[in-house]
Amino acid sequence: MANLLDRAVESFKRVGEGLKTVFMHSFREPTTQEYPEKIQDLAPHFRGRLALAVNPDTGDHLCISCRQCERVCPDKCIEITAHKSPETNKLELIDFKIDHGLCMFCGLCTEVCPTTCIINTNDFEMADYSRESLIYDIKRLTLTQDESTYYFDKKELPRPKPKAAAKPAAAAGAAGAAAKSAAAGGDAAAKAAAAKAAAAKAAAAKAAAAKAAAAKTDDGETKAEPKAESKSEEKAAEPKADAEAAKKDVVEAKTEDITAEPKADAEAAKKDVVEAKTEDKAAEAPEKDAKKDVKEAKADEKDPE
């Protein structure tokens, strides 16, 4: 009987201790995050959506069509289309497709790439309505110069050397391919619109920026429209003016090269595309900054609560 009482008292004590421990937890700060509003700053090496970087300094596409990534991929989800340009005898990248529905994000492709062209971004919000839309083509894969800079800095990757003679041809090739796929992809325009809507939310800033960048060559003017305000405001304060000028120079040089090319099919179209690209690129940085500001302002607002 005494034993029973002892045990009962002991049990009560234990249960009480447990209840107290659980109750005291209610005075701790929550450890969870309110996801779409607050996105955790992901680690630089996080293996998210794959993307193709451009040279952060010059804006050249880094891929040299060596197909190493295609070969190493365990899931065979990379498909590269390239051809040997008859003039320069160099490989020209025509299209680059990654099926993110197949990809297991092992990052092997990024490890073998000799030019650090293919990289894992921090974007993980890639849900989509169909399997087909998970197949990213070169347009959706290629990062803008600023994004490339961001990832190169974040991952502490060595800056690639600017390309020498082969540069113009490759760039033109890439642009040409981009123009082609732009003409083909009707849904890409829809995507861009969706990206714009998402961009209105500061929460989705990063992902939207990536998507908007992918849809860049489509239609420079409509894209620029809704953000005109923030752009112009930020531009005034942007100390990057000289860099911009420099970039423009480079592209002008490029376009000259193109005109000098003997193979003169659809020259004008290409030129347009490239110009549109430069315009948008220049506008990209301040736009991103503005978004960041909005995000911070939001965070400030929330704090006093």
Partner: peptide, 26 residues
């Protein structure tokens, strides 16, 4: 109640894994 507590600590470890290895589980 209780199962959330170990998961909270595990989450911290997974964050660390994410940083060093690139992913949380693979």
């Amino acid at each position: 109640g209780f199962p959330f507590y170990p998961f909270r600590e595990r989450e911290k470890l997974l964050d660390l894994f994410e940083e060093i290895a690139g992913q949380r589980m693979m």
